[in-house]
Amino acid sequence: MIERISVLAGRGRRSEADAVPCLEFRMGDVVSIVGQTGSGKTTLINDIEMFAAGDTPSGRRVLIDGEPAPAAFRDDPACNPVAMITQHTTFLSDLPVGDFLHAHARIRKATPEEMATAVARTLDFANELTGEPIAPASRMTELSGGQVRALLIADATVICHTPIILLDEVENAGIHRGRTLALLRQHRKIFIFVTHDPNITLLSDYRIVMKEGRIAALLPTDEIERSLRPAVTGLDDMMSRLRDQLRCGQRVRPSDLDALRPAQLRSFRE
């Protein structure tokens, strides 16, 4: 079982070295990688996914439990401990959701009972993340953007047994971010988000800040930020509710903006 992965510093676009000589991810960590578009976020997770050994443009090296990745991780995709979901990732299959998940579970689980349990757990998990429930009989191609994201995350977390999951800007489509993070924390894996979302970033244990292709800083979520989490999640939920209300043809009223609570925010400032 993998306990930690380390990323030894490489260089950014202007050949300036990463600011963190050795970046450590420990099992159970939820991490965000933040930075402006083009700052090198995706390059960093590509380095992790491919177990860079000084052979990628950044020159970074990835160690597993302090050692270079075993050859099998790169040679045999079935041994690869990393699952990756990107903004381009989607399902191509046209099968009903239940059949599709069974096809995946069949290569992972030994008995029909284990398969059935894995499929049911995946569906439950996905349905926690999305407001629009997914039925086992729906066709994969009929799923909405939010349902697809929810199912991608649920499948990678429940059926794949990869201990490391990379999520590259998957938050945009309608999934419930606060609940996603809470659910993922029940699984002992390393979750690495590439994200522009303030809620996911603050709910992470720490964030890696990218700039001009290099790792510019590593910021643990500090005490003050942790105390702000409920307020930020409240704002995020408020925006989700507003979106749903407007989508359902309802009117929006001042009381729908209750989460703003200026008094509470002022008290944080003091």
Partner: peptide, 14 residues
């Protein structure tokens, strides 16, 4: 491989 779900990638491989 970055275009398809982890599930399809694993089934393809298997």
């Amino acid at each position: 491989v970055d275009r398809v779900s982890q599930a399809e990638r694993e089934v393809f491989r298997a």
